[in-house]
Amino acid sequence: MSPVKEEAEREERIGLHNLRPAPGHRKPRKRVGRGEGSGLGKTAGRGQKGAGSRSGSKDRARFEGGQMPIHMRMRKLRGPHMKKSMPFEMFRTHTQPVNLADLDERFESGAEVTLEAMRAKGLATRRGIAVKVLAKGEITKPLTVHANAFSAAARERIEAAGGTAQLLDG
């Protein structure tokens, strides 16, 4: 390799030792109240009169002009855990959904669909959480489906396809 190429390569290599901001990137700090000639003298960019021109003015980003701030208007969640706090989440369900379209896609006609079989096919993978079969999609095969819960429409469609919907205990 020629010495010229080596020199150019050495200059181009970037490291912590030669990092610099782009030219013109750093600007000097704006110094207000330093005389009329600076353009920001006299009122120092605060305007003539009003609350904003006075000392102690509330010019922070979340100040709302004296109206009740949003963090004080919002509800307070009580209780030991945010997700379980009452009375705001009284109707939370603790089930994992499985759709009919997924069952139809993954199981053969006449198959026995248990929780273990669903888990093996990539459905209902969260252990210890009840499984509810929902009626999203169509089912064309007769399947025997075992689950903790069924929506009314899902049960209807399974039985219409010639299958059975069996509830599990627990």
Results as ranks from 00 to 15, higher is better:
L40T: 09
K132N: 08
E138P: 01
E64K: 05
G37E: 00
E11G: 15
A44D: 13
K84I: 11
R46E: 14
P21G: 14
G50Q: 12
Q48P: 15
G66W: 07
L19H: 05
K27G: 09
F107G: 07
L100F: 00
E112V: 13
R60T: 15
H94W: 09
R119P: 01
V113T: 02
F91P: 09
A61S: 12
L123S: 11
P69M: 10
T114K: 12
S57T: 06
K76T: 13
R31H: 10
G47M: 01
G41R: 03
G41A: 03
K58P: 14
S38G: 07
R119K: 08
R119D: 11
V133N: 03
K30R: 13
F107H: 04
G39V: 05
L134S: 03
A124H: 02
I14G: 00
R73C: 02
H71P: 00
F91H: 05
A61I: 11
P69Q: 08
P87C: 13
E11D: 03
H25V: 09
T95F: 05
M74K: 02
R92D: 08
A101R: 01
R31M: 13
H25Y: 01
S55E: 12
L16G: 14
L77V: 10
L123P: 03
F107P: 04
A22Q: 00
G79R: 01
P28W: 11
G45Y: 11
G35V: 05
L100T: 09
M74H: 12
T125R: 00
M118P: 10
M74F: 10
G56D: 11
A117K: 06
H81E: 07
L123V: 07
K58Y: 02
G24W: 07
A124C: 06
G79L: 00
S55G: 15
H25C: 15
M90G: 12
G56N: 13
A51T: 02
K121A: 12
P69L: 14
N99L: 03
M90S: 01
Q67F: 09
R54V: 05
S109G: 08
A135F: 04
L40E: 07
A101L: 01
E116Y: 01
G66D: 04
S109T: 09
G45A: 13
G110W: 09
F107Q: 05
H94V: 14
P87A: 00
E105S: 12
A101D: 05
M90P: 11
S57R: 09
R119L: 04
K76V: 15
K136V: 02
A61L: 07
M72V: 14
K49W: 15
P80Q: 06
E89G: 02
Q48V: 04
R46Y: 10
Q67S: 12
E11F: 12
E112A: 12
H71Y: 06
L19W: 07
K27D: 04
E89T: 10
A101P: 05
R60S: 14
E36P: 12
A120T: 02
P80A: 13
L100R: 04
M82G: 15
A124E: 13
R127G: 14
A51H: 03
G47W: 13
N99G: 03
R20Q: 06
E112S: 14
E12D: 06
G128P: 11
M118L: 07
E12S: 14
L123N: 07
R126C: 10
